[in-house]
Amino acid sequence: MEANQPHTPPAAAEGLVSVSGLTRQFPVGRSLFRRATSFIHAVDDVSFQLNAGDSLGLVGESGCGKTTVGKLLVKLLEPTSGRITYRLPGLDGAAGQENAPLEASAIIGRQLRTFRRQVQMIFQDPYESMNPRRTIYDTIAEPLAVQGMGTVLDRVDMVSEILMLVGLTPPATFLFRHPHELSGGQRQRVAIARALVVEPAFVVADEPTSMLDVSSRTGIMNLMQQLAHGLGIAYLYVTHDLAVARYMCHRIAVMYLGKIVELAETEELLRNPLHPYTRALLSAVPVPNPEYRREPPSIVGDLTAPIDPPERCRFFDRCPLATHYCRDNPHPAFEEKAPGHWVACYEV
């Protein structure tokens, strides 16, 4: 098993974050006295790589496992199998050498504290992702405080600085307010501030704009891009909205029932989608132009939950291109069909 070999050849793990064969299953109907017999295959054999300053959009419908991937990457969840390798500043490699790749399962104790500084997350719900009883200062300073960074007074300065950076000025008027006194857009700015105050190298953003109003959404999108670009932060942007992903990410990965089915540069993916699911998804996105005519997506059936799915291609039941070959063979391998354009499909 991969988990038994923490030493990764450096050449294979050039990226800031490398994911290979990542799998996470959730037991269904388990209780104290009964072992689960069924599993939701939330994330199934997912591989990709992210370099410093890179941005990857993880797009898919609800329940496709995109948020689970995000949580696995920030170690909120542990993978069932497969591995995530980080190459983060300050994080020592397995052999003790600095800046060497380190496997997620080996990050414990002191390393975990460093990890928490380098890898942060922005959550979807700006109303629920902040403790209602704590002030904006407390919220943003939390990572600093639990990691013992600076004195209280330093933290006030650091938080003020980051507040200005995310456009909440003057900071003194925000420091000691409570989250409920802020609008959704302002709270999401606070959430960004909390993630960036420790100067991470990698951020997972889990649909940070999906619950915001149109106008504040653009502000947050632009802010995130500016900051990530300015600070050289790599991010994984989890979203259900291809249009948003287009504006936020260099590359887009499309997920379907736990599998990444296609991954390519953003414009390449939009112009030349290869996987039938990507095509269906693209043709279902409404376009804010009354004169634009879309073809109805050629996809049948409804989304199901990936509970003990059969070995074959996950998209088989709904695929317009499905053949007997697809039915009788395991899920297609993720292959590079064009430079930088990866697809998992037998028929393209």
Binding site: V152, D154, M164, L223
Partner: peptide, 29 residues
């Protein structure tokens, strides 16, 4: 102690005004 990061000015937005933040423990209290 961590020095405050050297953030580049945000692209399109004009530079935010520099606001003095109270430095005394008393004001925090």
């Amino acid at each position: 102690m961590i020095t405050p990061p050297n953030f580049p000015p945000p692209g399109s937005a004009s530079d935010p005004p520099v606001v003095e933040v109270g430095h005394s423990r008393l004001r925090l209290l």
